[in-house]
């Protein structure tokens, strides 16, 4: 999968979950700078990502899904 395509889709999902515009999600987005990224949003993010990318994210990866970069890394490993 092409990088830009994956980035776009990830931004799209994240923005939907956090109620933002896709342009408001950047490479540096993380739990530290997105308001309201709590356990409920983490749950919504997990459900949405697995659905969007057709993958099952293993337990040990789920707990590390705290930033755009980490999530992208996980997805790249699962998709390739």
């Amino acid at each position: 999968m092409e990088q830009t395509n994956l980035d776009e889709r990830l931004k799209d999902v994240m923005s939907a979950v956090f109620g933002l515009e896709p342009s408001e999600i950047t490479e540096d987005s993380s739990q530290d700078n997105i308001e309201g990224w709590d356990s409920v949003k983490s749950l919504a993010l997990l459900v949405s990502l697995e659905e969007e990318f057709g993958v099952s994210i293993p337990l040990d990866k789920v707990v590390k899904m705290t930033s755009f970069k980490n999530i992208r890394l996980t997805l790249e490993e699962l998709i390739k």
Binding site: V13, A16, V17, S48, E51, E52
Partner: peptide, 12 residues
């Protein structure tokens, strides 16, 4: 319908 679509639609 996808969950992300539901969440976005709900806001609107």
């Amino acid at each position: 319908m996808k969950y992300s679509e539901i969440l976005r639609a709900n806001l609107k």
